[in-house]
C-alpha cells in the first residue's frame, strides 16, 4: 500500500499572532515553526502505525512551500516516511495547493491520501476535499478511526453530536483528527535516518489562484473580567440572566 501524507508548516501553538506590512502579512519574527499538529499527530502517525503493521507499506510526504519548509519536512521524515516531495511554491490559496498535491498524487499512484483535518493557521479544512475532487476519489473528513484491509478501509468520522462508521474502497482521501493515533516524538535513530531519506523538490504545475488575502485583523480586546465574590454565586447567576442575558 502506498500512502501520501500531506504536511503543512505552521506556527507553534503558543506563537504570538501579529501582522506587518499594513496588516497584510503574518509577522514571522521570533516565530517557531512546527509541523501542523493535525498533519503530524494524526495523519502521519496513523500512516506510520499502518506501516508498523504491514512493513510493505510505503509512506511519502508532500508539502507545498518554499525552501523554508525543508526543516519541517525533515522533521516529519524523522518521525517516519520513506521520502518527501516539496512542491516549490509559496501561496495561501487552497485551490492552488490542492491542485499541486493532486498532481503529485496522480503521478505516484497512491492508495491513500491523508491530510490533517485543518491547518492551525488558515483553518481552511479544504485541502483534503479539494484533492479528492481533483482525483475523483471518495473523501472522508474528520476521521477519528481508520483501519484498512486489502483495498477496503473502515473509517469512523465525527458528525454533529456523534460518530458515523463507514466503509470505502481505496483509493480514498481521508482528513484526520484526534483519536486517529497517539502522538509520538522522533527518536535519534529516526532523526539520523531522515538525513539520508530523499527530499525531492519539484516545480509547481500551472494552476489558478481563486482567492487572495486582503488583510488580517486582531479581535477587539476584552473589556476586562467582572469578578464576583466566591461567597455570592447568586450574583453571578443574576448577572448572566439580567446583564449578559445568556441564561
Amino acid at each position: 500500500m502506498k500512502i501520501l501524507v500531506c504536511i503543512s508548516k505552521s506556527p507553534d501553538t503558543t506563537a504570538k499572532i501579529a501582522f506587518t506590512d499594513n496588516n497584510t502579512k503574518f509577522a514571522t519574527d521570533g516565530v517557531q515553526w512546527i509541523i501542523n499538529p493535525y498533519d503530524e499527530w494524526y495523519a502521519l502517525v496513523r500512516a506510520i502505525e499502518l506501516k508498523e503493521k504491514d512493513a510493505s507499506t510505503v509512506i511519502h510526504l508532500v508539502t507545498v512551500g518554499a525552501a523554508d519548509a525543508d526543516p519541517i519536512i525533515r522533521k516529519a521524515l524523522a518521525l517516519g516516511g520513506d521520502e518527501a516531495i516539496r512542491v516549490n511554491a509559496d501561496t495561501n490559496d487552497s485551490y492552488f495547493i490542492a491542485t499541486q498535491i493532486a498532481e503529485v498524487a496522480k503521478q505516484g499512484g497512491y492508495d491513500l491520501v491523508f491530510t490533517g483535518k485543518e491547518t492551525i493557521d488558515f483553518n481552511g479544512s479544504s485541502i483534503g476535499g479539494m484533492v479528492a475532487e481533483c482525483l475523483e476519489a471518495p473523501y472522508i473528513a474528520l476521521a477519528i478511526k481508520f483501519e484498512v484491509e486489502g483495498s477496503k478501509a473502515t473509517v469512523t468520522r465525527e458528525i454533529e453530536g456523534g460518530e458515523e462508521e463507514c466503509e470505502v474502497n481505496l483509493p480514498a482521501v481521508i482528513s484526520c483528527q484526534k483519536g486517529m493515533a497517539e502522538a509520538r516524538i522522533p527518536n535519534m535513530r529516526g532523526i539520523m535516518a531522515a538525513r539520508t531519506r530523499p527530499l525531492k523538490v519539484v516545480e509547481p504545475v500551472a494552476a489558478d489562484h481563486l482567492t487572495a488575502v486582503v488583510n488580517f485583523e486582531l479581535p477587539p480586546a476584552k473589556a476586562g473580567v467582572k469578578l464576583v465574590p466566591a461567597d455570592n454565586p447568586a450574583e453571578l447567576v443574576r448577572l448572566l440572566h439580567e446583564e449578559a442575558k445568556v441564561i
Binding site: Y95, G129, E133, I159, T211
Partner: peptide, 20 residues
C-alpha cells in the same frame, strides 16, 4: 461536518473560490 466535506469538492468542480 457535512459542509467541510462538500464545499471544497464543489470549489474544485466549479472552479469557484471558497472561503471556509
Amino acid at each position: 461536518a457535512d459542509g467541510k466535506h462538500i464545499a471544497p469538492r464543489l470549489s474544485v468542480k466549479l472552479k469557484a473560490g471558497l472561503v471556509t
